[in-house]
Structures are given as C-alpha cells and as structure tokens.
Write a protein that binds this DNA or RNA. Sequence first.
DNA 1: CATGAATGAGACTTCATTCAT
DNA 2: CATGAATGAAGTCTCATTCAT
Lengths: 223, 223, 223, 223
Amino acid sequence: MTLSGPFALEASNLGKSGRTRARLMDAAVDVFAREGFQAASVNEIARLADVANGTFYVHFRDKDAIAAEVAYGITREIARQIDEAMSQIDGAAERFSFATRQFIELATTQPMWGWVLIRSAWIVPELNHRVETYLSSDLKRGVKQGIFNREIDPFIVDAISSMILSALAARLRGDAGEEAGSRVSELALCMLGFPVSEAKALAWSAITLQDFSTNVLPRAPKP
Amino acid sequence: MTLSGPFALEASNLGKSGRTRARLMDAAVDVFAREGFQAASVNEIARLADVANGTFYVHFRDKDAIAAEVAYGITREIARQIDEAMSQIDGAAERFSFATRQFIELATTQPMWGWVLIRSAWIVPELNHRVETYLSSDLKRGVKQGIFNREIDPFIVDAISSMILSALAARLRGDAGEEAGSRVSELALCMLGFPVSEAKALAWSAITLQDFSTNVLPRAPKP
Amino acid sequence: MTLSGPFALEASNLGKSGRTRARLMDAAVDVFAREGFQAASVNEIARLADVANGTFYVHFRDKDAIAAEVAYGITREIARQIDEAMSQIDGAAERFSFATRQFIELATTQPMWGWVLIRSAWIVPELNHRVETYLSSDLKRGVKQGIFNREIDPFIVDAISSMILSALAARLRGDAGEEAGSRVSELALCMLGFPVSEAKALAWSAITLQDFSTNVLPRAPKP
Amino acid sequence: MTLSGPFALEASNLGKSGRTRARLMDAAVDVFAREGFQAASVNEIARLADVANGTFYVHFRDKDAIAAEVAYGITREIARQIDEAMSQIDGAAERFSFATRQFIELATTQPMWGWVLIRSAWIVPELNHRVETYLSSDLKRGVKQGIFNREIDPFIVDAISSMILSALAARLRGDAGEEAGSRVSELALCMLGFPVSEAKALAWSAITLQDFSTNVLPRAPKP
DNA sequence: CATGAATGAGACTTCATTCAT
DNA sequence: CATGAATGAAGTCTCATTCAT
C-alpha cells in the first residue's frame, strides 16, 4: 500500500528479507525526520513499514542499530551521487562549491533525508563524522593546490559543516530558496581565504545541478 | 548536600519557594546538559534538586515550562555579563569579536550552560532566537558603521551562530582550547568581508576576558 | 470577588472562621455538582472558596467530612423550607404531592444542590437516608389516615425516592419542564393505591409553590 | 488461579488474545462493581486479570473503552437471555412483569453485573440508554395493545427504570428477598394504570424464572 | 486561624523488547 | 522469517494531606 522509498527501491532486486529491511529503513527515515531520533518509536516505524512490531527485531538489534544503518545509507548514497556528478570537476574550490550546492539541493529533494541529517547530527555522531570526512578531503585538496591558505583541521571542518547544515535547515524550513547553497558556499570560500569577488563568482556560477528527482533518488511519495 | 548552582546562588536571598524553584532550574540545566532535553526526565530533575517529584509541579507546569525558564535565565545572564563586560567597546568588529570569545569562555566556565545551549538549540527555538537577537544587533551596527559589507539577514546570522556553537562544542569536548573563540571569531570576520589580516589582528588581540569563575557566575560543582 | 452562595449567606453573621467554613461548603457544592464527589479535588474547592488549600483542613478532616456536612446542610435546609411552606397542609396525599413538587422546583432553583443530591446519592448514603426519612413520615401519615393502602417500608420509600430523583434529573437536564413534579407525584400516588383520577387531580392542582429565588435560598451566582 | 468469569467462559473458544481481553472485561466488572467506575483503576483491573498493566492497553484504549465494552456486553447478554426466556409470552403486561422479575433475579445471580449496572448507570449513559430501550419497547407494545393507558415517553421510562434499579440495589444489599421483582413490578403496573388487583395478580403469578446459575451465566466466583 | 510549599503514593500511559506460535 | 500479544520498567502528572511559618 505504502509506496516505496529510496531504500526499498534500491532493494527491489533483493530477497523478501532484504526488502523488508529496506522498508523498515525508509520508514525509520520518515519517523526520524518527523519526530527526531529520541521521540521515534519502534512501533511507529514498524507500522509505517507495514510489518509487525516484532519483525523490527528480526532485522535490527535496536533503535540505535537502525539509526546507524540509516545514517550510513544516507551519507553513502548522497556522497556517491555527488561524487559521480562532479567526477569531471578538478579545482578544489569548484568541487567544494559544487558539492555544497548539490548537497543542499539533494537533501531538499529528499526532505526527510535532510531532516534526518539535521535532527540526528548531534545524536548519531557517525553522521557528522561521515559528512565531515567527505568535506575534509576536498578542503585538503584545496590546500595542496595552494588555493586555500588555511590549515584544515577538524575545527574548521566542523565550523563549515555546521554552516552548511544551518543553510540546509533554512532551505527545508522554507526560510531560504535555491540560493541557499550558493550563499553558504560563498561564505565558506571567504572563510577559507578566498577573495570576496572570486568567492562570489564561483559560488554563483551557473552550474547544472544534477536533477535527482527523476533519476537516482526518486522522490519519496507521501502516504 | 548538593552544592548550589548559579540559579540557586542568585536566588539565595529569595524566599524558600524561590530557592526551591532555583534549585530545580539548576538541576534541570544539569540534566538537560547530560541527556538533552528530550531524554531528560522530570523525576530526575526533581531527584537532583533533592525535592519530591511532586514538588516539580508546584513550580513548573511541565518540562517545556522549565526549559523555557532555563533558556531565558541562561541567555539573559550571559547577555547581561557580556554586555557589561564590553560596555566600553564601541567598534562593531571589536564588539563582535569580544562577545564571541567571551561567550565561548563563559560557557566553558559553566559547561552545563554551554551544553544546554548546544543540545537544546534545535529543540527549544526560544534559545536560538535569543542568541541570534543579541548577535544580530552587533552585526547590524557593523553594517551601519560601514565595517561589514554584507547585508545582515537571518540566514547569515544563523550561519554564524551555528559556527559559534560548533566552536563551543569543540571547546567543551576538549577538542579545542582557549583559542577556539579567536579562531571562530576570525573566521566569521572574514565571512563578513573583513580583510584577513585585520580579522586575524582583531580576533587574536590580547584582551582581558572577564573572569567569571570567581565573580558573578560561580562554577557549578559536579555531583 | 466570588459572590457568596447559600451557606455563606446563612453564615454572614458568624465569625470569620464560620464564614470561611461556609464558603468552603458552597464551593464544595459547586465542585461536587460539576464533577461528582469522586472527581472533586480539595484543591479546587479551596481555590473556588478563595482560601489556601491548607485552610480546608482547618475546617474539615477530609473530603468525606465536607461531603457529609454538605449533605446534611442541603437536606436540612430543603426540609426546613418545605416543612415551613406546607405547615398548613394536613392531608397526607396533599402533603406528599406538594412536597414532591416543591422539592423538585426548589432543587431546580438551586441546580447545584440538585446535582449534588443526584450525583452523590449513591456515594454519600447519608443523603438518601435523610431524604427518605422525610418522605417516609408523610407516607406513614397517609397510611394512618387510611389514604394509602400499602404498607410503607424502606423498599417502597426507596422506589419512590428513586423516581423523584430521576424526575429531578430530567428537570435539571432540561428534558422535563415544570410539569416534572406533578408527573412524578401523580405516578407515585397511583403506586400508593390512589385512584388515577384523584391522583391526577391532586398532583396537578394549582398550588402556589413558594418562590425561593427571592426569598430564603438566593440563587447562587455564577463566577 | 483466578477462576473465570462470564466473559472468559464465553471467550474460551477464542484465541489467546480474545481470552485475555475477556479476562480483562471480567476483571473490570469486578472492580467497577466494588469501587464504581471513577474509583476503578486500570492497574487494579490488570492485576485482577493477572496480566501486566501494559497488557491492558494492548486491548483497550483506556478505561472508557473497556467500560463501554463491558456495558455493551452485559446489557446484550442480559437482554438476550431475557428475550429468549420470554419468547413465548405475548401480553405486554406479562412481558414487562416477567422481564422485570427475571432481570432482577438474573442480576442477583451475577451480583457484580448488577452492581455495575447500578453504580455505573449515571456515569456510563450508554448503560441506561440500552436498558431503557429494551424497557421502552414492551411498554409501547402495551399501549398499542390498549393495556397501558399512559403515554410512554422518556420521562416515565426513566422513572420505571430508576425504580427497578432501586429494587435491584435492595436485593443486592440483602435488604430485599426474592419478592423484590414482584413488588417493583406490581408498583410499576399500578403506575401504568393497571387496576391494583390485576397488577398484584400478574406480578405475583407463579412463573418459572429461568435458572441461569447452572446454565448460561455461571456464577462468578468471589476472589 | 490561615497560609501555601512540600510531600509521596499512585494513577495513567508509552514503549523497547521478548517469545511462543 | 514473520507475527503480535505480552511484558514491566519508566515517565508524566495529580492530589489528599501535612507542617512550618
């Protein structure tokens, strides 16, 4: 009855067990996004996934376990798509800017994934970790390329990722429009020592963001 | 038995009722800091405050009510102290930088207050609101003074406050030292269009931060 | 602020203590009427009486105690008024009919008293007892007068008083109008062996019910 | 341990879930009978049913829900048995008289059901409603048959049902014996315009009440 | 007498988790 | 694997009652 979400689609070629598991993960994304991790209840996840509550425990040890899996799945998928989309881009600044903008638009297309990233960031440290790992690698590349003149350490990566999440939140709340990605990207480039005019040019350059809504990440249908 | 926290000290001259209320608020800060708002239980707050669980409801309608009071109390107190400490400072950049550094050190002196600000920021919007209001006023002053050349809107205020909170978190986790305030302040000034060298100069200038540990805000003893 | 109820009026010439006590009783009537005895809370009674909750226990041992007092007060007052109004009436049937009708109208004028009688009848047996005592005496008089040819025992008194209370309830709910008293009185007279036509004549005779609304029992003002 | 009550017996052929549900309903009857609806606690019902307190909520949303079910179950069962027992009786007066007597004896056989009917009558209006519906239909039949010369409206139905309940209460308290049914039936017939002698004849005629104690409705054992 | 803060037992309810089917 | 009833700990909140002021 409930149409499938991203994980279920991805698992459509797996066995029944795999598909049930995927349905649970999609349901968990939904509930986490709406209620936050703490307030989410296993029963509600199971109900949304259209399985008995006991079935949850066939697939996951507990709520923490599914949260970790979901976090892993979301970040892996998002990273994969962004990586793929910018495989041709070489400049660190361009890569960073593109990735930031793409990330925000991607998470806006899948609002539940976006909310999970935001709401669970402080609770499932795994999430932050992975996001920052991806971020870190491009920033360090920029230093090597002599483009960024700041030392890249966890502190600054943290600061930038916080800013990006705050931009994403504004976008999801509807307080910011499509410009959110460019704005936060510009700000971050400034922070990294980029001259303002260049930062602006880069962050607002007309790039074609990949449209995932009809492609890899189908829009999750509302029940 | 339990040594008193900041609210209790402030209320030491009030009647018995006011002191109990203050003890509950100190206890709430403690629990919110350790467990986060959602996981905090009224019963634990009462236990920590050394009162019967029913007593909680003599003073607060529910958890939301005490959270709002605590948020109000913390931000009011911090704002008051920072305002007082920088009453002589006039330049917007100096004020911003000083306030940021002072804020982080202050919240480090009262780690529980710091954690409450961080952990509850997304759940008690009141908190963010108030922090951003204070931030906003100095930023706008800078624009009027012609020092910052960016338009100040909620989006950028949000971005900066996220960064500051991320720096505070790093500081509280022990991942950053006293330099945290200066670092994040420098980054933010860059974002606001400040030339890097000046940003650095301002953010790292030797200022005397007011020492609140022996003054207004006594360090809360750990249980 | 709160205008006084019947008990308070009656006690207006007593000392402060007596007046507080009366205010509590009026408040109790109100709360019992609205919520029923079980759901009534001492705190609400005290709040309505405009005294501190502790004050309640200065005057009454517990909720049962005030319930008994209220029951006693209400039945005593109602009985007194009905007795007074029918002091000139001698025939048992007339007395019974008049009393029944007067009782229902009286309790309709003081709806809270009415509701207390109904809602508490099963819980404070004292109440029923007293009502039935008054009832019983006129019924037995009728037997002595040779008017009623049924033996009067608790069973039939109970049956009649149940019927009267059910009529009162219908009246208070608005499901019956002023005819309620006459209807139930007629039914009861039939039960007692009265020929139907005479029962009807008696029960519907034009009598002047005493108007208590401007006399002894002032209408309780709504807060 | 706990012997089963009527609902449990009826459900003995259902699945485990149905049997637990029935045990809860029997327990609820017991508690409602002893304490009344308001004072009854869900926990006590669960304890009596020998299940964990949480189990209650697997089967019923709350106390209201189980009360409604119990009310429905009791009235349906009693009505079914009475209907069955008097399927051969046609005269309205005979039917009314028989039903009244049967009802009281039935509820005396299952004292807890009786007490629930009495104690909850004012609180679960559903109960009264259903009882009065059954009553009403025979009374109206009598009017059609030209036997009763009173108009049947809710007022008189209410009055009669109150009397019957008061008789039942007397019976359950032990203040009345087996004659209770006949007495109240006679009184009601008089009220309905029946000549006294005929009322007496009918109400006291030797009829065989069905003995449910060894038949359909086994006597609930006292704990 | 009056106050009202404090108490703590106990009510309701939710929910992660287990387990027999 | 899937089910869903059952569990019981834990949380929220109420309220009759006490007691120091």
